[in-house]
Design a protein around this nucleic acid. Structure first.
Lengths: 136, 136
DNA sequence: TATTTGCGCAAGCAAATGCTTTCGTATATA
DNA sequence: TATATACGAAAGCATTTGCTTGCGCAAATA
């Protein structure tokens, strides 16, 4: 049922012509999302918060819109941008795969630290022979 | 306590010279992580799974290692790559900010759909009046 | 010891990215 | 109606990205 809604939403008003991972890779775009998450904000208002030109921001907005993270509503001569966080679901799911992995490791570490008060060697156990710690 | 451990781990063996968001932006790199998550895999073994050259994969591995997502252990003439998912914590936290947002919206939508059996208009209601708020 | 294997490094290149400046156009305001 | 404002489109440019090929070197193997 939920997946049905998701699929429909994707087909409905999200074009997802662009990878959401790639969209959020840029720190400026992440900052934009953080900035407008509370309420829709006009393009100029967004651009005022950044050092780059309005056109540069406009392009970032276009990219965000293209992957469905942003919805733009025209109102007179202004365009208001609103966050649509649903595409982040994909990122969430991908990260979540590895979450238990690092959570488990952290717990083990935590226990160790609390017991021994030093940091354990993070050695790989499956091939403990020549652990020649690669360095650049 | 936990944050202390995290900070220490970062300082300990993660150089984080590269943005993790940027590292996982590339689909090949995400595939690499998915591939080696179970056990350490040698560089050639990884490269065999992809269409691109070994050198291209090698570069991807370097990028992943540079942001701490990968740990490389030399063993004779082989290098085994192991996933270190901890840097994904940052991604998780960033996405999680918006999770309730979309979860709430989804629930509302779900309710609406089950009730009315059509899709609601996703119009913005909060700025029907030139909301020129954010100052420069 | 001679050869093969695993792999990094460097150069070269095409495409993508991120930015700027200039322009055009539609909407608001005087 | 004349001007100012909000904004996208397009062009130009530097940098980054992702890939390839060619090379060298150390470890394994014959």
């Amino acid at each position: 049922m939920l997946s049905y809604i998701f699929a429909s939403k994707y087909l409905l008003n999200m074009e997802a012509r662009r990878d959401v991972f790639q969209a959020i890779a840029d720190p400026t775009r992440r900052a934009i999302i953080g900035m407008i998450v509370r309420q829709p904000v006009s393009v100029n208002a967004i651009a005022d918060h950044f050092d780059v030109s309005r056109q540069a921001i406009s392009l970032h907005l276009k990219i965000l819109a293209e992957c469905g993270l942003l919805h733009i509503t025209q109102q007179g001569r202004q365009r208001f941008c609103e966050v649509k966080p649903e595409p982040l679901q994909e990122v969430h799911e991908w990260v979540e795969q590895y979450r238990k992995l690092w959570a488990g490791r952290l717990n083990a570490l935590k226990k160790f630290v609390e017991q021994e008060d030093i940091f354990p060697d993070q050695k790989i156990v499956s091939h403990k022979r020549t652990t020649k710690k690669v360095k650049s």
